[in-house]
Amino acid sequence: MAKKPNIWITLAIAATLVTVLSFVLPKDAEKYLGELFWTRKTFAPAKYNVVIMGDSRVYRGLSPEIMESHLPGLKVLNFAYSNGGLNQTMFVAAEKKLAQNNKPKVIVMGISANAISGYSAGNQQYVQELNRPREEIFERIYFNPLRYWFSATSPEKLKNHFSETKETAFYRNKYFMNGYVESEKFPADTMEAIPSYTKDFTNYKVTPENLSDLFKQVKKWTDSGIIVAGFTPPVSQSMQMLEDTLGCLMKQ
């Protein structure tokens, strides 16, 4: 029996307790892996042969893992962001992720009205990630895997986690470090975002200047030997109609 308390014994008991609890308590992937995901995407090294650009539909829609299985020997990065624009800031950033080797260099663009129009001109999410304090970037990259394992919780969260009641609505994201996010929303509602997009397209439309800038960049890239591909991310019929008409994507 210890006569006096000892720091090392206390730390050993604490380590055992924390290890056991880390297996039992719920993990917060959304927070810790989400943060790690965005930081790693933003500061990804220049080692990719295929770089995909676009908005949230693109990072939720194209899995580099699946693409790599069809493109043996090539490395693919999904470099899309929420409100990620097809504009100069993102063109420069995406090009910097391309590897300088003998393999082909490919840029894939997910073309949507939001990504081309002034709506995404600020590239808000990308700029926010880029400008994080260095301490935060360092902590996210090196400590977040540890933080995820020892995820913070609360009495309320524990009550919900261990209670029998089934979730009636959820929005889950699974983060892949190649830039892809596998999202699951329940219940799915294709009309939910229409009102807010209607507002966005009323304020921001695709203009001839937007398209001209895009074509100039495509020409610049193709002239320098970069292969450029574009596609329209699939959306619901109502969204497609909204983009084509109010967003002026089709008109232009």
């Binding site: 008991i13 307790l17 924390v18």
Partner: peptide
């Protein structure tokens, strides 16, 4: 005391 502080750390 040691158990108490271990619980606080956890």
């Amino acid at each position: 005391e040691m158990v108490f502080y271990s619980v606080l750390i956890a």
